[in-house]
């Protein structure tokens, strides 16, 4: 077992709406990522996966609020640290982020090199221009990006170029953890491939030590990450290796998701999740029992009120369902 790079323990965060209602978007999430490993998070939109990504940065601004739990990066607990310390010594350098809408992630009226200068100086105000430029040029060259890009404004770059530039800038400080929130969803297939290739390269060259990859496109996860977690209504419902999760899902929700993906028909690649009828529960008042019970084909009355813990099984796998693993597998095989 490798060194643990990121450990999240029972993290809870909430949104406060304009009407001062609390929405419990991340409700007790725990997991670890080891050095050199990547973890994928899948789930329908609104399940809290993007919020989880934001929450893990340890840097909160309204309407997102921290409630409880720990985020430990390479042995250092960053939750509860002073925001200014987090900004200066964690963000960008320990944990970095690639946003969902990378198309608009760059300030349109600023040159890329100027932005890189701002990023580097935010962590080391004394860095001189020459040093910064050399560093940026070297990294861009290594990642196969033309060095002229540095002199351009974001508006002058194509969508794919913008995305690759964002990745290069995000990882310029060699962060230990990289969180990528649907980094390729808005791109065409070729650009998607480029982006995935680039992320792999970053891992292989050791610029980033671990990666969390969030997406709603399951096939992509299977190709990119080592492990996969499935998230539903603010909680993790199942976790396992990519292979296990795709070919042998246990939780009824994961089973439904994977089932909807693996139909061997033309044109299903990239099919969005959510082929399961019904809608997720309202997170302002999460239900007492299983959160999936309302939509679950196999739910029993007890599912609706019993509190359901995370249940470990197999080799480091985990699921969250009242029923036993064998019981579920038997039901699935009968279908």
């Amino acid at each position: 077992m490798g060194k643990v790079m990121l450990e999240v323990r029972n993290l809870k965060t909430k949104y406060v709406t304009r009407f001062h209602e609390d929405v419990y978007a991340v409700d007790g999430v725990s997991f670890t990522i080891e050095e050199g490993k990547s973890l994928g998070i899948a789930g329908e939109s609104g399940c809290g996966k993007s919020t989880l990504a934001l929450s893990m940065m340890g840097y909160y601004f309204p309407p997102l609020h921290y409630m409880s739990g720990d985020i430990i990066i390479d042995g250092r607990n960053i939750s509860g640290l002073d925001p200014d310390v987090v900004r200066k010594s964690i963000l960008g350098s320990e944990i970095a982020y690639i946003p969902q809408a990378a198309m608009n992630a760059l300030n349109p009226t600023q040159k890329i090199i100027k932005f890189i200068t701002d990023v580097l100086r935010a962590h080391d105000p004394k860095k001189d221009k020459k040093e910064i430029r050399d560093m940026a040029e070297a990294r861009f060259a290594e990642l196969g990006l033309p060095k002229e890009t540095l002199e351009k404004h974001a508006v002058e770059l194509s969508g794919g170029m913008k995305q690759r530039t964002v990745i290069a800038v995000s990882t310029i400080l060699n962060p230990k953890v990289l969180i990528a929130d649907e980094p390729s969803s808005a791109l065409d297939v070729t650009s998607q491939k480029m982006v995935i290739k680039m992320m792999r390269e970053l891992m292989e060259k050791g610029y980033i030590k671990s990666m969390l990859f969030i997406t709603h496109e399951l096939p992509l996860l299977y190709n990119v990450t080592d492990d996969i977690m499935v998230m539903y209504a603010g909680q993790i419902v199942e976790k396992g290796t990519a292979k296990e999760m795709v070919f042998d899902p246990v939780h009824p929700y994961s089973h439904g998701l994977m089932g909807s993906i693996l139909v061997p028909e033309e044109g299903t690649r990239g099919q969005k999740l959510g082929a399961i009828p019904g809608a997720p529960p309202n997170l302002k008042k999460p239900p007492d029992g299983c959160r999936f019970a309302e939509r679950c084909k196999y739910a029993c009355p007890e599912c609706r009120y019993a509190s359901i813990p995370e249940k470990p099984f197999g080799e480091g796998r985990m699921y969250r369902c009242l029923k036993g693993v064998d019981e579920l597998k038997e039901v699935y095989s009968g279908e």
Partner: peptide, 13 residues
């Protein structure tokens, strides 16, 4: 705008 969030997450003041 998105770039504000992104810049914040890169540690810019």
């Amino acid at each position: 705008a998105d770039y504000v969030k992104y810049a914040r997450f890169l540690g810019i003041k």
